[in-house]
Amino acid sequence: NKFNKEMRNAYWEIALLPNLNNQQKRAFIRSLYDDPSQSANLLAEAKKLNDAQA
């Protein structure tokens, strides 16, 4: 399933972002599970926040 693969990839990328705190990571990951079709958008948002907090 395409969404499962995208979701799994996004999950690990988000989990490993160095500048997000655990609460932020959990919120993004919860959103991934709520709507796997938004994986790419959620990952992009997480990366933006990660960069902003660098």
Rank of each mutant, 00 (worst) to 15 (best):
F28L: 14
W12S: 06
N19I: 03
A15G: 09
W12A: 07
A40N: 12
A40T: 11
S37G: 06
S37T: 11
Q53S: 11
K2S: 14
P18H: 06
I14R: 00
Q23R: 07
D51N: 13
E13R: 13
F3V: 15
I29Q: 14
Y33C: 13
A46L: 01
L32N: 00
A44S: 10
D34N: 10
L20F: 01
N19E: 05
D51Y: 11
P18C: 09
N50P: 01
A40D: 07
A10C: 03
N41H: 13
R26I: 14
Q53C: 06
N4I: 03
Q53I: 10
S37K: 11
E45G: 06
I14Q: 00
R8L: 15
K48F: 09
A15S: 15
S39I: 14
D51C: 12
N50Y: 01
Y11D: 01
S31T: 06
I29F: 10
A46D: 00
A46S: 08
S37W: 07
I14K: 00
E13D: 04
F28V: 09
L32K: 00
A54V: 10
L17T: 02
N19R: 06
N19T: 11
A10M: 04
P18E: 10
A27I: 07
P36K: 03
Q23I: 13
Q53L: 08
K47V: 05
F28Y: 15
N19D: 05
Q53A: 11
L17V: 00
A54Q: 08
L17I: 01
A27H: 06
A40K: 12
R26M: 07
D35F: 05
Y11P: 01
E45H: 08
K25G: 00
A10W: 02
Q38T: 06
N9Q: 14
S31A: 11
S31R: 13
N19C: 06
A27G: 10
L42R: 06
R26C: 14
N21G: 07
E45W: 14
L20K: 00
S39R: 15
K47M: 06
Q38N: 12
K5P: 08
A10Q: 02
L43P: 01
K48N: 11
I29V: 14
K48S: 09
L17S: 14
L32A: 01
Q53G: 04
K47F: 04
F3C: 15
K48L: 10
Q53H: 06
D34E: 06
L20A: 00
L16P: 01
K2W: 12
Y11G: 03
L42T: 08
A40M: 11
L49H: 04
L42Q: 05
L16K: 14
N41S: 11
A27C: 11
I29T: 08
N41M: 11
N1R: 04
F28T: 03
L32T: 01
A52V: 07
R30N: 13
I29C: 05
K2P: 08
D34H: 04
Q24S: 06
Q23Y: 07
N9R: 15
E45K: 10
M7I: 05
A52S: 11
Y11A: 12
L42H: 05
K2D: 15
R8F: 15
L43K: 08
D34V: 14
N9F: 12
N9H: 15
L20S: 00
I14G: 00
R30P: 01
N50T: 01
L17W: 04
Q24T: 08
D35N: 08
L49T: 12
F3E: 15
L49S: 04
N41C: 05
R26H: 13
K5M: 01
D34I: 05
L17Y: 06
D51R: 11
K25Q: 02
S37P: 09
A52N: 12
K25W: 02
K48G: 11
K2L: 04
Q38R: 03
A54K: 08
N41V: 08
N22D: 05
D35I: 04
K47A: 07
N50C: 03
